[in-house]
Simulated assay, not measured.
Amino acid sequence: MVQEFKDARVALTIDGTALEVSAIHRDGEKAPIVFLHGFGSTKEDYADIVRHAQFDGHAFLAWDAPGCGATHCADLARIDIAFLLETALAMIDHAGFERFHLVGHSMGGLTALMLAHRHPQRVLSFVDIEGNIAPEDCFLSRQIVDHARASDELFFDDFIARTRHAPAYASALYAASLRHKVRAQAVGPIFRSMVELSDHGDLMGKFLGLPCPRLFMYGAQNATLSYLDSLRAQGVALAQIENCGHFPMYSNPVAMWQAIAAFFTASASRIRSSTRD
């Protein structure tokens, strides 16, 4: 029998800012999986884990990041990657997860990288779905610099229009829900922190320095990323998702879940050894 996910609301205070976080979760006897969604997305990107038998028995947790989805944040101007990191740690601790698999997409991949870098002993494996690890990854977030406007609302309006017509898989689908999934006042602080970290945060060094098994997942439309060969040469597993750009969970979700499951299987012996240490 499929064990469906449950809904939860968690009250937190992060750096003096009140949050009410909307989450989904499932209990299980196998190692938990923590999911972090990307900018403009929500926890429901990962709800279909319960439809894929390869993950039966795994506990999991996903939530709407502050400024996104059904999560309430009392001060949207406070939201940056550091704030999202502290929120993630608080949610993981609230769930009681000591060690866990980590999956993050885009903004969530960057947040997950910062988490794994701070607490490498807690992360069993890391699936990075086009999370920022180099300056070239700021194709969305750098628009806050390249297309600056006089107000949050004007920038967001223009951002949605550009995204709607971008020549990439799922761009129009993604753009259609942005206004419903993100508060405009949160966009600037999030994007500026993503650009700053991508340009000056040694993200590649942090990623390559992680001791856990790592998978970098990317859409076939982004197979020209300059660092892919270097990642492979340095022991990072790669998964190219066909018929896909930046959003495998929208363009080719079955292939996304299959790639994650295959990575878990391939990494199982190393993960078991790490768990015994």
Rank of each mutant, 00 (worst) to 15 (best):
residue 1 M to Y: 09
residue 1 M to K: 08
residue 3 Q to W: 12
residue 4 E to P: 00
residue 4 E to M: 13
residue 11 A to R: 13
residue 14 I to N: 02
residue 14 I to L: 01
residue 18 A to I: 05
residue 20 E to P: 00
residue 22 S to P: 03
residue 26 R to Y: 11
residue 27 D to P: 03
residue 30 K to R: 14
residue 43 K to V: 11
residue 45 D to G: 01
residue 51 R to E: 15
residue 61 L to F: 06
residue 61 L to P: 11
residue 66 P to W: 11
residue 67 G to E: 04
residue 69 G to F: 00
residue 71 T to C: 03
residue 71 T to G: 03
residue 75 D to N: 11
residue 76 L to H: 10
residue 80 D to W: 10
residue 81 I to G: 00
residue 90 A to R: 08
residue 92 I to A: 08
residue 93 D to N: 15
residue 97 F to E: 11
residue 100 F to N: 02
residue 100 F to Y: 10
residue 101 H to D: 05
residue 103 V to I: 05
residue 103 V to M: 00
residue 108 G to W: 05
residue 109 G to L: 02
residue 110 L to G: 01
residue 112 A to M: 01
residue 114 M to I: 04
residue 115 L to G: 02
residue 116 A to I: 08
residue 126 F to W: 06
residue 128 D to E: 01
residue 131 G to Q: 06
residue 140 L to P: 02
residue 141 S to E: 08
residue 144 I to P: 05
residue 150 A to T: 08
residue 154 L to D: 13
residue 158 D to V: 00
residue 170 A to D: 12
residue 172 A to L: 00
residue 177 S to N: 15
residue 184 A to F: 05
residue 188 G to A: 10
residue 197 L to W: 13
residue 197 L to H: 07
residue 201 G to D: 03
residue 220 A to D: 14
residue 221 Q to V: 07
residue 223 A to S: 12
residue 224 T to D: 15
residue 225 L to D: 07
residue 225 L to Y: 10
residue 231 L to C: 07
residue 235 G to Y: 07
residue 236 V to D: 09
residue 239 A to W: 06
residue 240 Q to G: 03
residue 242 E to I: 01
residue 258 Q to Y: 06
residue 262 A to K: 11
residue 263 F to V: 09
residue 266 A to T: 06
residue 267 S to C: 01
residue 267 S to V: 04
residue 268 A to W: 02
residue 274 S to Q: 13
